[in-house]
């Protein structure tokens, strides 16, 4: 096991950040920690990177205990915090050189590992880090976190606030790194990124809702979901909430995701109900379950 977490709990004053968290990440796995802001993702990352003590429970990273062997962990892991945490007044190259130096290595020594990523920002190597675009900052931060060839890489919300193109590129980079044998724990608030991980843990309010592969998690969803659309979204939501057999009603893009309490649900009945209420252009059709649906079902 590359990361092993056993019954970790943590509170700040009167707020419980983590409640009895346990899970394991296998060697070479790309593991996603999926949940909204305030779910406890960053707290868990800080405990695993030896920056915080847990109130209860134990954890090991790359075989080292996070409390007793914190110095070993600091030599063997890479960490990319949530905020952009590089020196804005240093150039791209100076930042990378600096982090290489404090890890006792050089850019040349580990160039093959970061090459894929670094070549994309190398043309700007004399630009100050503060003047880079969001996507480039992220690539630089990843290069810096990788410069000492860590066994385990912690990425705390690496794609938050980044445009879709950079997000996509970033995940492609992570996939390539995985092929080089690096274990990765990635946190993200974006449910659609869950599908890109080998396994995920859904987390909310400091508790794990479920852990499995994204495919399995979707399979566990107990209901059939329908996409419903009508000429007036607001009234549609009102009437669906009024409908006595509804199990859940959630806006979902241009549709409403609807589930029914009954096993023998007949969509035509619902359409009739909505028509009687005066709605027009009603469409209803079964749709595929997403991680987000599962998350909401579990979090209810």
């Amino acid at each position: 096991m590359s990361i092993s977490i056993q019954h970790i709990s943590k509170s700040y004053e009167d707020v419980t950040a983590l409640k009895d968290i346990s899970f394991e990440v296998k060697e070479g796995e790309l593991f996603g920690l999926i949940g909204p802001d305030g779910a406890g993702k960053t707290t868990l990352f800080r405990i695993l990177t030896t920056l915080l003590f847990a109130d209860e429970g134990t954890a090991t990273v790359a075989g080292y205990d996070v409390v007793d062997n914190y110095k070993d962990i600091r030599n063997h892991v890479g960490y990319m915090p949530g905020r952009f945490s590089l020196y804005q007044d240093l150039t791209v190259e100076e930042n990378l050189t600096f982090f290489a130096t404090i890890f006792g290595t050089t850019i040349e020594e580990n160039y093959d590992l970061i090459k894929d990523i670094y070549v994309q920002i190398e043309p700007f190597k004399n630009r100050r880090a503060g003047k880079l675009s969001g996507g480039m900052k992220q690539k630089l931060a990843l290069s810096c976190a990788l410069i000492h060839k860590p066994n385990v890489l912690f990425l705390d919300e690496p794609t938050t606030g980044v445009d879709p193109v950079s997000r996509k590129e970033f995940w492609e980079m992570l996939k390539r790194l995985q092929k080089k044998g690096i274990t990765m724990l990635v946190s993200t608030p974006y449910m659609d990124e869950a599908a890109l991980c080998d396994r995920i843990a859904l987390i909310q309010d400091g508790a794990i809702l479920e852990i499995d592969t994204p495919q399995e998690i979707i399979k566990h969803y107990p209901k059939k979901i329908y996409d419903i659309k009508a000429n007036n979204m607001y009234e549609l939501i009102l009437y669906l909430n009024e409908y006595q057999y509804n199990h859940s009603v959630y806006p979902f893009g241009e549709f409403i995701h609807y589930t029914d309490k009954r096993d023998d649900f007949n969509p035509d009945e619902l359409v009739q109900f909505l028509k009687d209420k005066g709605l027009e252009n009603i469409t209803i059709q079964p749709t595929a379950t997403t991680i987000e649906d599962t998350f909401m079902e579990l979090a209810r």
Binding site: V77, Y79, R83, Y87
Partner: peptide, 13 residues
Amino acid sequence: ELGTMEILLVSPI
């Protein structure tokens, strides 16, 4: 404030 202290702490320095 910048968060770089976090990275320095999680390093062998």
